[in-house]
Amino acid sequence: MTAIDIGVPRGVPRKRHAPTARRHRRERIFKVVGLLATLVGLVALGALLFDLAYSGLPRLSWDFFLNFPSRRANIAGILSAWVGSLLVILVTGAIGIPLGVAAGIYLEEYARKNLLTNIIEINVSNLAGVPSIIYGLLALGLFVYGFGTGRSIFTAGLTLALLILPIIIVATREAIRAVPDSLREAALGLGATKWQVTRDHVLPAAMPGVLTGVIIGVSRALGETAPLITIGALTFIAFLPTPPITSEPPFISFQWLWDGFTVLPIQAFNWVSRPGDDFHANAAAAGLVLVLLTLGLNGIAIYLRYRLRKKLQW
């Protein structure tokens, strides 16, 4: 429908509008309904945050971040959990983001539309809805037993990378599709190769959208528990992975990739299921850290997106 075509086909009686007062009343009613719908989500989030903060805040201290888990709730901390979470997410991002973005670019810019790409497309969308434990079972069979990668940070990163791959692919494709064709045609017309067009024009223009997908994916990976327990994440681990920098040449060690680990949601889950209120306070505090970490990541993404959008000029 174009902008001029506001009329109704001839012969069809024009729908009579309700009197002005009633229309305005409906307008107001919808406004209230819309507001209520928005508030349900916001209030739920607010209540959750308040509840976590209420029982968790008193437990937050440097010691809580620097202590290992313990049977005594008041000296138990989340050191191994937050270090584990960060390292696993690092591996997840390093593998999942380039793979997902590359696949998205290929499917949108390079692949021909045929039966095969259609099947791939449907599968990718479906994969985004597969329960996470299935990824855990796949990873247990394929990575842990098949490739012998063990119950390690590397395996966890690979598993979560698989989990967020469909999310990143779908977001990348949507973002690339939103880039106007005139941009591509202009660059192609000047003799640029497809890769040059993609790298210098399409991808930068699509970056804000890609980033949104990456952040949604990474935030989801941060909160995952089930697939990690399936591949054999630990619950009690009172030491840190091998440091990445060593005193002997070549000074950089990737040994930490093979170390056992635990993550924040597993630690919180474990504390929630313990008897006694003092462990529940720990769980709330760990949950609070996790929520703040996710919100922080989102904040960084929103800031980056804002800066990238401002730079875009067509």
Partner: peptide
């Protein structure tokens, strides 16, 4: 680099 490094060090060190 991560994959390369892993091939070098392997699982034995653990």
């Amino acid at each position: 680099a991560a994959v390369g490094g892993s091939l070098l060090t392997g699982n034995e060190a653990l």
